[in-house]
Design a binder for these strands. Structure first.
Lengths: 340, 340
DNA sequence: TTGAAAGCGTTACCAT
DNA sequence: ATGGTAACGCTTTCAA
């Protein structure tokens, strides 16, 4: 029932704990005979070093914290899984917390992680996080922090995708497919991720001298219902959009459903490109053309940046993981020029 | 940089640590004045009790472990989220591990959790777990364990859904919709969950005097590709099925895609019912009729059972959370009898 | 080769 | 009201 400790083994053999400690860690200074006896007892008793005692001794918890808006969302789950795997390789445990995409909860998550004495925190901001005091406090306390996916200009290391460029590329692709009234369906504007993607979208329009129509830009809450409402509004416009760029999978799927519910055809009447995972795209119908992000890479890079900081490197680094467009069935093929 | 401890506070005030300890926990035996000074210093220094030291002192880690086949799969993610929330309420931290649905990894996960000295483990078995020695070892060591979702008859507490009845109900519903050649697409047969669901399916057929055709029962690996292959085989039969009951979301989605790829219509040619989450069903097209499971409830119940055990209750309990059928667009409406 | 002791942060107990 | 001390499990340093 009770876990066996070095002391228990020492007592049984009438030797000192320090000897047991050395033997169990394979250090020399223990006779072979004694060492074997110790190892056998450890084996029999199912001895496992108490990581809490070790932590105390070394003043290091070998634990990091992760904060995500929603672990149940495919995109986040994959990143978390990747961080976990990378952390484990380095001997770190992860404490995963979920902010439910709300800034208020996010603060509690950080608080909880600090209480656990994590050595660092990897965090994806909640969509409504506009006050960064909880993160600035971390910075002041010199606690390693890495932002991922959704970053902010607050002097913290980050791993994000090339938001501007990927949105530009996606928009260009829609334009090349013949779309001219392209809508942008995004999240709240205090999210840098959102403004970046929106800028990429706007840049592409400008490059092609396509007039920007503010009524085609919908930046509200990231949620299924919000996406539904916004898309229905778009479709009710006198001149509805002929394409939608959605900055989040939830928005992409809700747009798709809204479009179909109104009897529009995809991609003939309205094309869609969304930021989403392979799996969500694969499952959708028609399969949504998407901005594919290397989630595994994001997780690995995020942990590595954190590890750097935990090792004492206090430089602020920004890593950009390139995303690329994957065309599926929600977009039209590139239209041929007249003279082709 | 370095975290402040009770001792640091004590030194600054020239008092004893034990006094600081009492003050910080609001115990009496400290003058109001001193208490306030201590609290102020704690506040300023960002003092947080070291949970590792506390664990050591109390010989309790207030940590539990979770093992899931794949956290990135919607179904599991929701359950994990629920367990986490419930555990937090009770002051427990969760260490989440992912077996990638492989028995070999599952053993490593359990090992890792034991190394972390978790007080209990909540586990969903990998689909290929046929050897339960790692779990039996836990039982012998009196370490609290709760199985969820996929259980086994090995004398451990569990939380599952009503597998037999829900599969029977789903099959009955397909029969009522007019289907007679109903296929069962499941996982490996050493999974009790699978045999239970299969039995429910077979019972329904027997009740309706529908001959059982072994070629319509496909119990292989649970994976997208496996589901694809099996479904294509089913569709290639001289007499292909007119309905499919899929015991897992991956299988359901792959069946749907296979059916469409062969030009069959859903539900007119082939109906589908699958065990999946609301979100996956909602996203699919046509939306798949599904066995809806109360994932939050499963998580809550699982943690509660574990908590019971951690408190010393060593009775083996089996909780069944009722699932119910949710009809969507992949099944035909109940056919009317001829004389209606 | 082995032992003894101190220390990590905290709490409980007993003494003052 | 406050202090001193031992203890949790482990590692490290120094002594034997």
């Amino acid at each position: 029932m009770k876990r066996i400790s070095q002391r228990d083994i020492a007592r049984q053999l009438g030797v000192n704990v320090s000897t047991v400690s050395r033997a169990l860690r394979g250090l020399d200074g223990v006779s072979l005979e004694l060492k074997q006896q110790i190892e056998q007892l450890a084996e029999e008793g199912g001895y496992r070093p108490n990581p809490f005692a070790v932590s105390l001794r070394y003043d290091t918890t070998r634990t990091i914290g992760i904060v995500v808006p929603d672990v149940a969302y495919n995109h986040n789950a994959h990143i978390v899984k990747s961080i976990e795997a990378e952390a484990r390789k380095a001997g770190y445990m992860c404490i995963i917390t979920d902010s439910n995409d709300q800034s208020e909860n996010e603060k509690n998550c950080v608080e909880l992680l600090l209480n656990m004495h994590v050595e660092g925190i990897i965090i994806c901001l909640a969509q409504d996080t506009a006050d960064f005091s909880h993160l600035e406090r971390l910075k002041r306390a010199h606690i390693p922090v890495v932002l991922f996916d959704r970053a902010a200009d607050i002097g913290l290391s980050s791993v994000i995708i090339n938001d501007v460029a990927s949105a530009r590329e996606a928009t260009n692709s829609l334009i090349e497919g013949g779309s001219r009234r392209i809508a942008f369906l995004g999240g709240p504007n205090q999210m840098k991720q959102n403004t970046d993607r929106k800028h990429g979208y706007l840049e592409a329009l400008r490059q092609h001298n396509i007039p920007i129509r503010t009524e085609l830009v919908k930046c509200h809450r990231i949620s299924f219902n919000s996406g539904l409402t916004d898309t229905l509004e778009l479709l009710s416009l006198p001149e509805p959009p002929d394409a939608i760029l959605a900055s989040h999978g939830l928005l992409g799927i809700s747009a798709l459903q809204a479009i179909e519910s109104r009897g529009f055809r995809i991609p003939d009447d309205v094309s869609i490109i969304a930021y989403m995972t392979d799996w969500v795209s694969e499952m959708s119908h028609p399969r949504v053309s998407f901005v594919k992000q290397n989630l595994k890479e994001i997780g690995i890079k995020a942990f590595r940046l954190l590890l750097d900081q935990m090792k004492g490197d206090d430089s602020v680094q920004h890593v950009v993981v390139s995303a690329r467009l994957e065309l599926r069935d929600s977009t039209k093929k590139k239209t041929l020029r007249k003279y082709d």
